[in-house]
Design a protein around this nucleic acid. Structure first.
Lengths: 178, 178
DNA sequence: AGGTGCATGTAACAGGTTACATGATTAA
DNA sequence: TTAATCATGTAACCTGTTACATGCACCT
């Protein structure tokens, strides 16, 4: 078996969820996994080609009118590769870069902005939360996998927002340490 | 004012917290901000040079015996740049790549591994949590900024671990949907 | 004498984003 | 008719990691 990138696995997963064109995959990623896994056209289209070379997906030209369009589907090997990934025990990748946390971490260099920075983080997460809740209301009868991921995302984000609110209140009281 | 990268700001912040060599900064990053902001020698050393060219830091050669060593400190401009960043209102960067979430998202393609994948995420976070709690016990009398970041990290991770435990139990019961 | 920690550095590589280019279809 | 959406694609760029190279100091 040749190498399979993580972006490649995402594409296999998306095809398994019924997405079929590069464009469609990108739209869906932007609506859903974007929060914990983003992807750009610059990755998706070349990767679809590589996956086809590896025999994991199959593409058919299905133009709409005279607008070019390539519809992809999983091959048996592709589904097997997706399942093999889901069943594998290798330590899953985790990478986070959060400038808001960084600002909080260094906030002793400008304590009078600490509350502001926490508020900015909270507002970012409140926007995220609103987006997730909107998704939730559209996701009636969705599949368990995506749905439980959504629930987890909502719960975590809510917890974060609540922590920020508490911290903001605590820091706004004139008494005690800043 | 010339461009200032995020890695550059991290370095300024680290110098403000009393770190002084490239090596020292790297060790400290690996112990603390690593969870939400990592950095490698391949970034740190070249960036220190750039910051010096920009006049934001000042480096002095202070060998120990005959072992080369360059000690850096913030210049007034460097401190001002750090503060300007902390005071700025530009939308803070946030990037996450979490393979565990991805596996959960796609888990309908292999439902019988769903609990396993959640358990793997929980174990990862329990290791993180243990590391954070160890840090906490060493951080007596630390500065408010780093300390509250640590508290936030511990709280969030604990919440995540609890969610996983609940989900694992729910999915292990034979009745209902998987 | 040897292992660990302190300390600096870079070259090759991998991964991903941005900006651009192109053009058809559909809804307002 | 015009804006939004569907649809595909790439080249240049940027950022960051990995692997390697080097060597002293300190402890056992």
């Amino acid at each position: 078996m040749p190498e399979l990138t993580l972006t490649g696995r995402v594409i296999l997963g998306m095809l398994a969820l019924g997405r079929n064109t590069g464009y469609d995959i990108k739209q869906f990623v932007d609506k859903t996994t974007r929060h914990f896994w983003a992807a750009s056209y610059g990755q998706i289209y070349p990767e679809l080609r590589r996956l086809e070379e590896q025999g994991l997906v199959r593409g058919r030209s299905e133009p709409i009118g005279s607008r070019a369009r390539t519809v992809y589907e999983l091959t048996d090997e592709g589904l097997a590769a997706l399942r093999a990934w889901l069943a594998s025990d290798v330590e899953p990748l985790y990478e986070l870069r959060d400038e808001g946390m960084l600002k909080l971490f260094f906030s002793d260099a400008l304590p009078e902005r600490r509350v502001e920075n926490i508020r900015a983080m909270r507002e970012r997460d409140e926007r995220t939360l609103a987006g997730l809740r909107a998704l939730e209301s559209h996701a009636q009868g969705g599949r368990p996998g995506p749905y439980s991921t959504l629930q987890l995302g909502i719960g975590m984000t809510q917890w974060f927002v609540d922590w920020c609110k508490e911290a903001e209140q605590r820091l706004s009281e004139p008494e005690g340490s800043n």
